[in-house]
Computed example of a mutant assay.
Amino acid sequence: MNHERFLSLFIRHERELAGLARVMVPSWDAADDVLQESSVVMWRKIDQLQADEEFLNWAKVIVRFEALKHRRKLSRDRLVLSDELVSLIASEDIEQPCEHVADRRSAVQECLSEFSFEHRQLLLSSYRYTGGAAELAEQTGVSANSVYKKLGRLRSKLRSCVDRRLSLGIKSV
């Protein structure tokens, strides 16, 4: 496989690989580090890859090993999940078909579009700020408890919408 083809495939699947890394390590910074180290390993082992169709599973295995290596460095931290649990999560993700991820992403986007601008902003901002609901509460001038409750209701509504769309097989147009 040539380097241009590798770069094309890596860029196409980068979000999914980053998601896998994020599941396996405790922070986005750690996930970025794992993805960067994984890309270097992939680049070195590019000759192992025979077909484009093999890329995603091949890359996921490399990301998984790099994440486990990173986790060993963090093993002294009490808040890190056990290697067995992380391996179980990673193996389920590797076996999960890409279409399922794409369908779920599409369902989330469609469901989010059904929310008011204010509710959509609240849902999304809860993932953008590191301070969480307390920071959001301070910015909006309401109590943190109110923000927690409202986010809980909105997330429940979003989850129900996504589950409904996926169970009915509704695709975005």
Rank of each mutant, 00 (worst) to 15 (best):
M1L: 11
H3W: 05
R5S: 12
F10M: 11
I11W: 01
E14T: 02
R15Q: 15
M24G: 03
W28N: 13
W28M: 14
D32V: 05
D33V: 04
Q36T: 08
Q36N: 02
S38K: 07
S39P: 04
S39G: 04
V40N: 03
V41P: 05
L49H: 05
E53M: 01
F55S: 06
N57Q: 13
V63K: 00
F65D: 11
L68K: 12
R72P: 00
R72I: 03
K73E: 08
R76F: 00
R78L: 06
R78A: 06
L79A: 03
D83E: 13
D83T: 10
E84L: 07
E84D: 14
E84N: 04
L85M: 10
S87E: 14
S91D: 15
I94Y: 01
I94D: 03
E95Q: 14
P97F: 09
E99W: 11
H100P: 00
A102T: 09
D103E: 13
R104T: 10
R105S: 12
A107W: 05
A107P: 04
Q109V: 09
S113K: 13
F117N: 07
E118N: 08
E118V: 14
R120Q: 14
A137F: 11
E138R: 15
Q139M: 15
T140K: 11
T140A: 12
S143F: 11
A144G: 04
S146N: 08
S146M: 04
R153E: 07
R153I: 12
L158Y: 08
S167E: 14
S167H: 09
V173C: 06
